[in-house]
């Protein structure tokens, strides 16, 4: 009797796991199809670039403050911590290298991606989800205007264009922050700071790879945000749930993608 009961619970648990797996794979499949559909409907986003520019204001310009301020602080912390560690080995002169490499390779794209996901991604999901809930998307479709082309694609491209710019700004601000703390505050030699940095940061290897990373993150975050919004159940809870999922999923995807990309870019070459 008891054995039967336990077996039932176990069966239930395995069934649940199976169910979640199937659901998960379905969603990934839908998201991929959605991504392709957005690419196919991108004509309007470029023909009427004004639409994309408008969305760049919301995704890019409005994310500027958080990106610039965070970048500055992260750079300043790097300057302090890096100096603390490096001076134990008498290598304060490598501070510029440390700050620049960490920012350009990793922290710039990744942190900008995470901030972008929570600032712009959640806003996109909420907006699209609300448009769906209030039947604005259906209305558009009934007016013979494809929401994928008119609403989704411009936001997609705005995100993809904004993201590398934001990441570059983040890195630049960070280096500025590291410079302020390292050179202005602590007194590392200014010439050494910049020349060591220039000597060890490579344009293609480091900067270009960082830009590629940020473009990939931009693609991933905007696709997830748009998909979650487009797919949200048309209720208030549905939209709020989708917004949360956007932030969680895209943050995880950014970090996972970062690992994969780093492995390809920096490991594969040595």
């Amino acid at each position: 009797m008891i054995l039967g009961w336990e077996r039932e619970v176990l069966k239930q648990a395995i069934e649940n796991l199976g169910n979640h797996t199937i659901q998960g794979v379905w969603r990934i499949g839908f998201a991929c199809r959605f991504f392709l559909a957005v690419l196919l409907h991108s004509g309007t986003a470029f023909r009427r670039f004004g639409l994309t520019i408008r969305e760049m204001y919301f995704t890019g310009v409005l994310s500027l403050i958080i990106i610039l301020v965070s970048g500055l602080f992260v750079g300043m912390v790097l300057g302090l911590q890096g100096y603390e560690t490096l001076q134990r080995y008498g290598s304060e002169s490598a501070l510029g290298t440390l700050v620049a490499l960490s920012l350009v390779r990793e922290l710039g794209p990744v942190l900008a991606g995470l901030l972008f996901a929570s600032r712009a991604g959640s806003a996109i999901t909420a907006e699209i989800g609300l448009m769906k809930t209030t039947e604005q998307l259906s209305a558009m479709e009934m007016m013979a205007v494809d929401p994928l082309a008119r609403v989704v694609a411009p936001r997609f491209w705005a995100g993809v264009i904004s993201m590398p710019l934001l990441a570059a700004l983040f890195s630049a601000m960070g280096i500025l922050g590291g410079y302020l703390v390292g050179v202005r505050l602590i007194g590392v030699d200014e010439g050494t700071f910049w020349s060591q940095m220039q000597g060890s940061v490579d344009f293609t290897q480091d900067i270009l790879n960082g830009v590629i990373k940020s473009v990939v993150f931009g693609l991933a975050v905007t696709t997830i945000a748009l998909f979650e919004g487009y797919d949200a159940p048309p209720t208030a809870e549905g939209v709020s749930g989708a917004t949360t999922r956007t932030v969680v999923t895209s943050s995880l995807v950014v970090l996972a993608l970062d690992f994969v990309l780093t492995a390809f870019m920096f490991r594969g070459l040595n």
Partner: peptide, 11 residues
């Protein structure tokens, strides 16, 4: 033309 339940104006 279609008039949706709560108007569905573009907000």
């Amino acid at each position: 033309g279609m008039l949706f339940q709560f108007g569905a104006l573009f907000t």
